[in-house]
Simulated assay, not measured.
Amino acid sequence: MKFVLALLGMVGIAILGGIWPTTAQAQKYPTRNVTIIVPTGPGAGTDLLARILAARLSERMGKTFVVENRPGAGTIIAARAVVQSKPDGYTLLMGTSTPLAINATLHKKLPYDPATDFTPLALIATVPFVLVLNNELPARSVPEFIKLAKEKPGAFSYGSTGPGTPFHLYAELFSSMTGIRMVHVPYKAAVAGLADLMGGRLQVMMTDFASSLPLIQQGKVRALGVTTKTAAPAAPGIRPIAELGVPGFEASAWQMVVAPASTPKPIVDKLHAELKAVMAMPATRDQINKIGLVPADTGSPAELQAFVKSEIVRWGDVVRKSGATVN
């Protein structure tokens, strides 16, 4: 009997020994700088959003949250870097619906599983996009642009931030729903594509407001419509594409902070609570609105995991409908 009790005591100590270090580690976390990897170049909405969060988290948690841009390969470079990092809470991804949902169907071969290789921390924002044209094009409305593009199939080029990104997928969806044909030109950053749009090397682009709103306001590009069902808060005067000749058109991205799978639960819970507190701050929500995004109310990490799985299914339908694919 004494032997059994002693054995049980040893087992209990072993179990507690595995729990307490993790809990203590979470209480001290972070003890050094944390990196937030961004799958886009500087100046895009995802980059600006990550910098807003990084500044707030640095203030609250006492260590610097550093934003690191790793654009390329349709967000795969950044996503793979986070998946392959140590799951200790010191490398996070400012994820979007592209690496976390769209890529699952778009890519025939994907070096990670978005449903299982990440642990969601918080849903941050949704992202309306806008259809913009080079000012030299004679089209001044969605129907006029569709008519012009049908008269000149393949003559117009559109820019994106890479295969599978909303910049690419929404343009392909628009093309498939309207029967037009355009040439895809990928860039590493939205600002580079917009520079070529203004310069006339591109004629059209589906882009986020963070990158394009100042240019729209200054009259440097022409906005025709937004991709969401309702007007975007950042530009209430621009009507939805669905109301302007393409009924049923709807597409919006989302932004979520995630960590590698197997990140200790106490650290996941701490980051979730801190991000939720940051998103509850009126100043944070105001900053997000100003860059053309719409602040979101996050669910728990478990609820977000289910959300990601449902989004993989939803975006799978959109990808197949658009006809887009990457080998």
Rank of each mutant, 00 (worst) to 15 (best):
173 L>W: 03
47 D>N: 11
50 A>Y: 00
38 V>N: 10
257 V>F: 15
315 W>S: 02
107 H>I: 00
106 L>S: 08
132 V>T: 02
159 G>T: 04
35 T>W: 06
137 L>N: 02
198 M>K: 11
112 Y>M: 15
265 K>H: 07
179 G>H: 08
70 R>W: 08
295 P>S: 07
124 I>M: 15
265 K>Q: 12
275 L>G: 11
259 A>K: 14
284 T>A: 10
218 Q>P: 03
8 L>D: 07
194 L>D: 03
96 T>K: 14
226 V>W: 00
302 A>G: 01
272 H>L: 03
106 L>H: 14
297 D>L: 08
59 E>I: 15
302 A>H: 02
287 Q>S: 14
247 P>G: 02
222 R>W: 04
248 G>E: 02
80 R>S: 15
148 L>E: 05
118 F>E: 00
207 T>Q: 00
35 T>E: 07
159 G>F: 09
238 I>P: 00
1 M>K: 13
104 A>Q: 11
101 A>V: 00
73 A>M: 15
102 I>Q: 10
141 S>D: 03
55 A>T: 07
16 L>A: 13
172 E>N: 10
100 L>N: 00
194 L>C: 05
160 S>E: 01
316 G>N: 04
317 D>N: 09
148 L>Q: 11
99 P>T: 01
237 G>S: 10
299 G>C: 11
127 V>R: 15
302 A>Q: 04
126 T>W: 15
20 W>Q: 14
98 T>W: 08
285 R>C: 11
117 D>S: 14
66 V>H: 12
4 V>L: 13
248 G>D: 02
220 K>N: 05
106 L>N: 06
128 P>K: 06
197 L>P: 08
98 T>M: 10
295 P>N: 07
33 N>L: 04
10 M>C: 13
109 K>W: 03
135 N>T: 11
222 R>G: 01
294 V>M: 13
279 M>W: 02
267 I>N: 13
25 Q>D: 10
219 G>N: 03
25 Q>R: 15
124 I>W: 15
123 L>N: 07
204 V>F: 08
248 G>L: 08
38 V>Y: 03
258 V>Y: 09
